[in-house]
Write a protein that binds this DNA or RNA. Structure first.
Lengths: 149, 149
DNA sequence: GCAAAGTAGTTGCACCCTGGAACCAAGTAG
DNA sequence: CTACTTGGTTCCAGGGTGCAACTACTTTGC
C-alpha cells in the first residue's frame, strides 16, 4: 500500500495536503489560539462547553485529555470565572460544568475569530470554486469518518 | 466581516472545516507522530532535513522553534544517531545539519506512514471526486498563501 | 442492609517541551 | 584593533501532561 508510481493522485494528494496543513499553520496552532490568553486545550474546552452542561470526564474525552489534566484545566477556567462546577443532582461524585455569562462571551469570541479567519480564507478562493471547495472538504471529512469510526 | 446570514457559504465552510480538522485529529496530532518514538517537532525536523544540509537557525525557523529549543531538539536527534552537526566551512560559528543514513531511513518511514494514511483517506473518497478534492486543497493552500505571505 | 467493587474527580510527583536571558565563539564594520 | 552583530549553547523558570495514590460516592451481589 505504500509504493505508488510517479505522479499518482495519491502522491499528489499527500503533497498538497501537507502543504496545506503546514501553510495554514495547523501544526503550530498553539501559537494563536485566538485573541484571549488561553491554551488551545482551554479554547477547545470552552467552545465544547458552549453546547451545554457536561460532566468533567466527558469534556476531557472530547478535548483529548486525561482526567487529571482535565481537572486542572477546569480549575483554570473556573478561576478566570468562565465556568462553574455545579454538583450533579443525579450523581454525588460528578460535577456538571456550565459556562458563565462571561465564559459564554469569551467562547463566542473564539468561535467568531476562527470563523473570521476561515471567511478570509474562503474569500481568497475564486467565487466560482467555493462551493466545490466546501464539497471537497465535506468529502474528506466523510472519508475520515470511514477510516476511524 | 463577522456577521453573516444563515446558511452562507462562509458559515458552511467554517463548520465543515472545523469538522474536518477535529475528525482527522489534526489538533491532537501530538498523539501519533508516526511510528518511531519522537515528538512532532522532531518528526517535522527530520522530514525538513531530508531536503539537505541546513543551518540550525534555519531549521528552527522552519519548525517554528526558538534557538534554544532547536539546539536541544538537535541534541536529541544527534544522540539517537539520526543527524550530525558538521562545521560550516564558510562560517566558523554555524553548524550544518546532515541526516545520517539511519536518520534518512527514519525520516523516510515518517513520510511513508503519513503518505499511507493520506492514501487511505483518499481511497475513501469516491474515485470520480478525487481530482476535484486535490484541486480544492490546492486552491485552499493558495488562498492561505494570499492571506499571510 | 452491608460489604466489595467500580466510578468521578483531586492531588502529588515526575517528565517533557518551551521561551527568555546570560553567555561564548566567530564574523563584520569602522 | 575595538565595537557590534550573529550562530549556538547553557541555565533557569513555567506550562502542560500522564500516572499513581487517594477521597467520596454509587452500584452490585449476597
Amino acid at each position: 500500500m505504500s509504493d505508488r508510481d510517479g505522479g499518482s493522485p495519491h502522491e499528489e494528494f499527500a503533497e498538497v495536503f501537507v502543504d496545506f496543513v503546514r501553510g495554514f499553520g495547523l501544526l503550530d496552532a498553539e501559537t494563536t489560539p485566538c485573541g484571549a490568553p488561553m491554551s488551545t486545550a482551554e479554547a477547545h474546552a470552552i467552545t465544547v462547553l458552549r453546547a451545554g452542561g457536561l460532566h468533567q470526564g466527558v469534556l476531557g474525552e472530547r478535548v483529548g485529555l486525561g482526567k487529571s489534566s482535565t481537572s486542572r484545566l477546569v480549575d483554570g477556567l473556573e478561576q478566570r470565572g468562565w465556568v462553574r462546577r455545579v454538583p450533579d443532582p443525579d450523581d454525588g461524585r460528578a460535577r456538571l460544568l456550565r459556562l458563565t455569562d462571561k465564559g459564554r462571551e469569551v467562547a463566542g469570541g473564539v468561535v467568531r475569530r476562527r470563523a473570521d479567519r476561515l471567511s478570509a480564507l474562503l474569500d481568497n478562493v475564486p467565487a466560482a470554486r467555493r462551493r466545490s471547495v466546501i464539497e471537497a472538504l465535506r468529502l474528506l471529512t466523510e472519508a475520515g469518518r470511514l477510516d476511524a469510526p
